[in-house]
């Protein structure tokens, strides 16, 4: 992989110049809530929160939209495709490795077997520029093997003090560098040492750990474990964990009718498997009526079903669900208890 160097003194110039390509999305800090971050369109490179921690909503919102019109319909003319942001060129800047891994999983879900034209149209117009980070007490990406990325980005910036090392992942990333060659310089021996020191420091900073070895098998053995009922009692099934999850992709499709009662829109909107009507079918039968079944399903989907279907779990260890849960449910704690069989029964 090609690696170049970008001095921090030139990084804002680099960010501004990216606007020539298209819309630049960066993490920003909420002025009214310090320490709370969100992805938004960059207006000025000074808005960039370089030291940000996880954002409220992951960058999936630009690829798999929270709510989008997918068709316009008319009683006589049928369905007309609408793809929102089809022509928008976009750069997702400053993505941490966990979020890049999240997008890699969404890529597989939305493009395997059948291609989802809505996701695909936006995905192929999206450039991903990653940024290295240091973990806090809720990060467990190291346990999920998502703490580094070898692919899935166009450029990846690693902080080595005075400079960024920039890994070039794709031909498009190479073009972005080549067009701004005056900003970049060659990597020197000292930079390599600085990078290795940064890696060491980062690896040693993880405070949260989850053993995922053999987890699908353990989960299969614990299908009837009382922990699922315990969780069912605690979980409010609000769906916050799904909304903030970088790999949750479930959605609903529904129609809204215009006032002429002849035309309308078909809408695709995020859904969560924790919602009561998630597995409800016509006629009133609900395949997952009680909360415990729905909470359990979420854990089994992430850690069991995805491993069977795609070869790896769909949790990237970003810690957003731990942050978001109003009932204080912690995925690491739950899975550790399942492994140890150390849940309390009342």
């Amino acid at each position: 992989m090609k690696v170049v160097k970008l001095p921090k003194s030139k990084v804002e110039e680099f960010l501004s110049s990216l606007q020539d390509f298209g819309e630049v999305i960066i993490p920003k800090e909420k002025t009214e809530h310090p320490g709370v971050y969100y992805f938004d369109v960059m207006e000025n490179p000074s808005e960039m929160a370089w030291e940000y921690l996880r954002t409220i909503i992951p960058p999936k919102k630009y690829l798999h939209k929270p709510r989008e019109v997918i068709f316009k319909f008319h009683k006589e003319q049928g369905y007309q495709e609408v793809i929102e942001d089809k022509e928008t060129k976009r750069i997702l800047f400053g993505l941490h490795p966990c979020d890049i891994h999240g997008i890699k999983i969404l890529d597989v879900v939305f493009n395997r077997d059948y291609m989802d034209p809505y996701y695909y149209a936006r995905r192929k117009n999206t450039v991903i520029i990653g940024l290295s980070c240091l973990p806090d007490e809720k990060c467990f990406c190291k346990s999920m093997n998502t703490d580094y990325v070898e692919d899935g980005f166009d450029l990846f910036l690693s902080d080595i003090g005075e400079d960024f090392l920039v890994a070039v992942g794709t031909s498009l990333g190479d073009d972005l560098v080549a067009e701004r060659a005056h900003l970049f310089s060659e990597v020197e021996e000292e930079d390599r040492r600085k990078y290795l020191a940064f890696r060491k420091k980062r690896n040693e900073s993880f405070r949260l750990e989850l053993d995922i070895s053999d987890l699908p098998y353990i989960l299969d053995l614990e299908q009837k474990s009382p922990i699922w009922d315990e969780l069912g009692k605690r979980c409010l099934t609000c769906g916050s964990c799904s909304m903030v999850c970088p790999t949750c992709y479930c959605f609903n499709v529904y129609d809204t009718l215009n006032l002429d009662a002849k035309s309308g829109q078909r809408i695709k909107q995020w859904d969560a498997c924790l919602f009561k009507d998630y597995a409800l079918v016509a006629g009133g039968h609900n395949f997952r009526e009680n909360r415990a079944e729905r909470v359990k399903n979420r854990y089994y989907h992430k850690q069991f079903r995805m491993v069977e279907q795609y070869g790896k779990p769909s949790c990237v260890g970003c810690g957003r669900c731990i942050d978001a849960c109003p009932a204080g449910i912690d995925v690491v704690e739950v899975l550790t208890k399942v492994r140890e069989g150390s849940y309390v029964t009342h």
Partner: peptide
Amino acid sequence: MLLTNPSQTVCKSYDLGSNPYKPE
């Protein structure tokens, strides 16, 4: 960069470029 190349996957009765969500 996309990890999966849709043209290499089986698009079952749908060609690449056609919309499997579109009712006829």
